[in-house]
Every structure is written in structure tokens, then in C-alpha cells.
Design a protein around this nucleic acid. Structure first.
Lengths: 131, 131
DNA sequence: CAATTGATGTAATAACATTACATTCACATT
DNA sequence: AATGTGAATGTAATGTTATTACATCAATTG
């Protein structure tokens, strides 16, 4: 997935997320794109849906917000399970990948014949800089 | 924490969750408690806050819903990190605890001086019965 | 060109959660 | 019994997040 093949709206949303230092809600993305002609939440949600599908953006379930992927060139889907630390003070998000955890969760699911879809791992807390 | 020491509202909410076979949203809990005098969302949210604090109930971040803890007698806080599988077809939720994953996440956080607060692990997919 | 498919624009509404403020209850102290 | 305190409650209003419904537009293809 390259950033070239995005539509105008997808590109605008991705750009906003890429330049934000922290996660943004759909509505704050909307606010930032008013000048670019955005008027309704759906314009943002539709673009986000596609960006999520492409692996360019992640949704943080525990805070209802979105961040650009840390390595969008490959599309994050290449990296398997993605986990996050989220600083509740400054909003800093760190994305990481741990094969051991991934295997462990896969194993648990397999043992129970549970067919795994999307998996969420989010650690909320305080980052080193804010401690 | 015993179920005895709950207030009326807390007890009613816990009871509804305990007897539901799947996670419930705050508003669906509210609906089920209309006959018991519940009128406003806040009555539910306040009770849920306490039940979460006591470890009697879990919040599923990825679906904005709540479930009773699988072993409420001890209050789930006794068991360390809690993870869930959530069947998107039937709503069945399975709670589990994995020390290896817990240690791994703790280690990651420690390496980065990230002070861990609440951690969310949720696997959404399809359970054995629904496959 | 017609047909199809994906993207967009807009309005309305649904679903989830919190703020603000007044009141009541349980209980300890006097 | 009166008072003070903190926790819990009742109620209304509002804020935040997400979806449904429907019309239109643009690119592609048969």
C-alpha cells in the first residue's frame, strides 16, 4: 500500500494523523479538516475505515482515537499483532510487536477452537517523560 | 469484596450482568432496570464504576460493554492481568489469565520506564460453537 | 454509451458517556 | 436527639462518538 494511491479525503485524514503527535478522535480530525471542505463525521469515518483496512492507521479502542501507523511504508499488516502503550498524560503512543505474546494468544485461541479476528492490546499509563 | 456489601443499585446492576449470557451495554442494563426504578444512565454508570473498582465486573473496551467477572468471589484483582476472547456472533466472552504475557508486557514497559496502568487484551473473533 | 463500482456530500439519528446540581442515607460524634 | 460528614442517589441537560439513509459524482469497463 502506498500513500500515493489514496483518495483526496483519505490523504487528508492520513496527513492530519501523521503530523499529530498523539492520537486524535474522529471529531477532532473533522475540525482540522473544515478548511479543506470537510463538513460531516462520515467523511472522516469513511476515510478512516479505508486507512485501517490498508494498515496505515490504527484505532485505539480504549480511548476511541486513531493514530498513524509507525511504519506506514509497509502497511502495518506486515508486522503481525500490534500492541500499544498510551501515555494518559501527554498522549504519546508507542507501537510494538511481540512474537511471543502473539504466539501465546494464538495458542490460547487454537486450543479452544476460537477463530481469531482483530486483537487489541493496549497498555495505558504514564510514559518516561511524564513520570 | 463480597456481594453482600453492595448498595442496592450496585447489586441490581451486578445481578443483571451476572445473569446475562453475554456482555451488556450500559444502556441495555438501564433498560433492564427500568422496573426497578432506574431512570438515567448515570445510575448505571455509577454502579458500574464501583463494580469495576471492586473487580466484580470488567469493561470490554473494544465493544463498549460490560461483563461480570468469571470469579467474582475473590474479586478479579487477585488474578493479575485479564484477557478476553469475545465471539462476535454469539457474544460469548471467555476470560483468561496468562502469566507469560503479563510478564512480557511488564518487561516491555519496564524497559521503557513506562508506568503501567490498566491494560487491555481483547481477542475478537468466532467461538468454537459459532464457527 | 450504458452499466457498474467506489467515493463523496449532507442531514438526521442512534449509541455511549459525563457534567452539574440538588437531595438523601448511613453512621459517627457530640 | 441534634449535628456533621462522606457516600450514594435522583434528575436533567449536555457532550462525545458512530451509524443510517439517501442522493450525487467520478472512474472504469463491457
Amino acid at each position: 500500500m502506498t500513500t500515493q494511491s489514496l483518495t483526496r479525503n483519505q490523504g487528508l485524514v492520513f496527513d492530519v494523523l501523521s503530523h499529530a503527535g498523539s492520537p486524535l478522535s474522529a471529531y477532532s480530525i473533522l475540525d482540522k479538516l473544515r478548511d479543506d471542505g470537510f463538513r460531516a463525521p462520515l467523511q472522516v469515518y469513511r476515510a478512516l475505515d479505508k486507512l485501517l483496512e490498508f494498515g496505515l492507521v490504527h484505532r485505539l479502542e480504549s480511548i476511541n482515537a486513531f493514530v498513524a501507523c509507525a511504519h506506514p511504508d509497509e502497511g502495518c499488516h506486515a508486522h503481525g499483532l500490534t500492541a500499544f502503550t498510551i501515555c494518559e498524560t501527554c498522549g504519546q503512543v508507542t507501537e510494538f510487536h511481540d512474537h511471543m505474546i502473539e504466539d501465546r494468544l494464538k495458542g490460547f485461541a487454537k486450543d479452544r477452537n476460537f477463530k481469531t479476528g482483530k486483537t487489541t492490546i493496549e497498555i495505558r499509563g504514564t510514559c518516561a517523560g511524564c513520570a
